[in-house]
């Protein structure tokens, strides 16, 4: 069993220092890359999709060298990949593992989908209350309209 796990891990090679974003729903991998702006990333970046996973069937993984994420970036990941795990690697060793969590409030990172909302017309930082975590429904603090998973976009 252990041997098998090792082989799986090696499908995407290890990094010395940085962050591993594991257990990403496989269809969300490229969304995570886009949200985190990783296409512009200058350091080593390893991406795997459609990897076998006992927990998820198929999963995606992103390994980002020399990068530790700030909490607002972690929140962004949670909105598209609620199942993701963050693994902090220092000198090839796992120093921390944490699950990403959809926050109660989402500030500044999501655009309100209502075109007539004041946040889309004036320099107003967006604020949402998460009213449904599983369906992902965000109520705008300003216009009170609901932005749902299907029409979410990031600032």
């Amino acid at each position: 069993m252990e041997k098998e796990d090792l082989r799986k891990e090696l499908k995407v090679s290890a990094i010395e220092n940085g962050t591993v974003i594991d257990h990403i729903p496989t269809q969300s991998v490229f969304q995570v890359i886009k949200i985190l702006n990783l296409s512009e990333y200058q350091n080593q970046l390893l991406i795997g999709t459609n990897l076998e996973s006992r927990k998820m069937g198929k999963k995606g993984i992103i390994k980002v060298s020399n990068k530790y994420f700030k909490s607002d970036e972690i929140n962004k990941i949670a909105l598209v990949a609620a199942s993701a795990t963050l693994i902090i690697i220092k000198k090839f060793q796992v120093t921390e593992k944490k699950k990403v969590e959809i926050p109660e409030n989402v500030e500044k990172i999501v655009k309100c989908f209502n075109p007539n909302c004041i946040t889309n017309h004036e320099d107003v930082p967006t604020r949402f209350t998460v009213i449904d975590k599983s369906e992902l429904k965000l109520r705008c603090h300003y216009c009170e309209k609901i932005t749902a998973r299907s029409n979410i976009s990031f600032l």
Binding site: N114, I118, T119, C143
Partner: peptide
Amino acid sequence: HPKEGSARFASEVSKVPVINAGDGAN
């Protein structure tokens, strides 16, 4: 104001209380 959420924003900026007399369709 014709934009939704404008009154909430105004109430956060203003030093005095704000009464919303209609913000768009909100």
